[in-house]
Design a protein around this nucleic acid. Structure first.
Lengths: 225, 225
DNA sequence: CCAAAAGTGTTCCGTCTACACCCATGG
DNA sequence: CCATGGGTGTAGACGGAACACTTTTGG
């Protein structure tokens, strides 16, 4: 291969994943203890280096898959973080991605295997390098996005109750919402389908289970919450 | 220096600048013909490689300064672009930034010196690599930002008329707005100050010149347009 | 004197918000 | 039988959208 830019310096490129989950009415992030030097033992996001034969998006997906075994996960780029001294080892520029997963898809066994755990976004400890800043930015972006795009369903099981959905919004936005107003808005979105199924876990009376109809959404992609 | 990550591959990192300006009631971008191989002669954003001793933000600012001679310019990161084959030469990941400048600060002389020109965002030609995608994303981000943050003033002279400001919003959002409603909203923002000065260039009657009061804004940062 | 841009308020309508009670069931 | 969460409608407040005429002055 011809080398065109030989006079320029190269840098190490990594990706870091901010993995959001929703559990126990709380928005959580998956973090662990860093397993390599420098910074071994500090709280850290899960990340990895970008290979020369993969795009940034691919690297992010591969990294997430390494950790979770999951494919086809909703991921969005948060941005590139590149202060000179952000990594105490050597110059590393990192591109952060956030992912939304259903916590049920990531069981206890995997948690222990990888030495990671879910922590409430409100209670994230001081983390390695600039990982706190990454989480903060990811959260803001997700908060914006969730208002106008149907990404909330990525954090829930396929079948969910309206109360679950409402609690999710409350957790993400950090404020309670009125039940009747919330449900009124849901009713206007035909792609949030009521099923015949009833959830009897969360209440004695039982709550109707709903489902996000992707095809229907594509026909009339109007989402507002 | 200790090397921690020696087994990983490094990549070339560049920054590309989407430089927005407002002129003749149109939103424009500053683009030129690429001066190096590969892609010599194609329409391109102005960019440069990131050095090992500078952050991404610094690299973007330096690059912008090389082209315009301007300092302290409003810049925001658009994101990292990193498909494997985005650069026909070799693997280059690029971080895009958008900048807002007052076209009056960038005169004809500089335009010719650097072989760049202002083109309407609506009429941007097919460009080198993924530069069209960068411009598109930058534009969307700027469009969002301009609604809730006082960045519009970066595109105008220090003193401006309300009609200029309105035309700027119309150009950015691609739709006309009602003059009276627009001015009503302006009146509610005390940090958009009316001066004693009158602009006689754009009209016979003369229009009041306004100014953005940064200090006043900081005391009560509520911007909505 | 007229063309061209500046400047100025009010009404209407749709949207958002606040708010309270009955229902079904498991334990 | 009662505690727990599920489910439902309306009225009033607020904010955004529509809309037309007068003023000033250079040419």
């Amino acid at each position: 291969m011809t080398t065109f830019y030989k006079e320029f310096q190269k840098v190490l490129l990594s990706v870091d994943c901010i993995i959001f989950g929703f559990d126990n009415n709380k928005l959580k992030v998956l973090i662990g203890r860093r397993q390599m030097d420098p910074g071994r033992g500090e709280w850290s996001l899960y990340g990895g280096f970008v290979r020369n034969d993969e795009s940034l998006d691919e690297a992010a997906n591969r990294t997430l898959n390494e950790l979770t075994g999951l494919h086809e996960i909703y991921m969005r780029q948060v941005g590139a973080f590149g202060t000179v001294d952000r990594d105490p080892g050597e110059r590393v520029v990192s591109v952060a991605y956030y992912a939304l997963i259903n916590v049920k898809d990531y069981d206890e066994k995997l948690l222990k295997e990888h030495g990671v755990e879910w922590v409430e976004v409100e209670k994230v400890p001081t983390m390695y390098s600039d990982h706190n800043a990454m989480i903060l930015k990811a959260r803001k972006m997700m908060q914006q996005k969730i208002k106008t795009e149907p990404i909330s369903f990525q954090l829930l099981p396929q079948l969910f109750t309206l109360t679950q959905l409402q609690r999710l919004y409350e957790a993400v936005n950090g404020e309670e919402v009125d039940k009747r107003n919330f449900r009124k808005r849901i009713k206007e979105m035909d792609f949030i389908e009521k099923t015949e199924l009833i959830d009897k876990v969360s209440s004695k009376r039982g709550a109707a289970l709903y489902r996000f109809n992707k095809k229907m959404y594509k026909e009339d992609p109007n989402f507002k919450l």
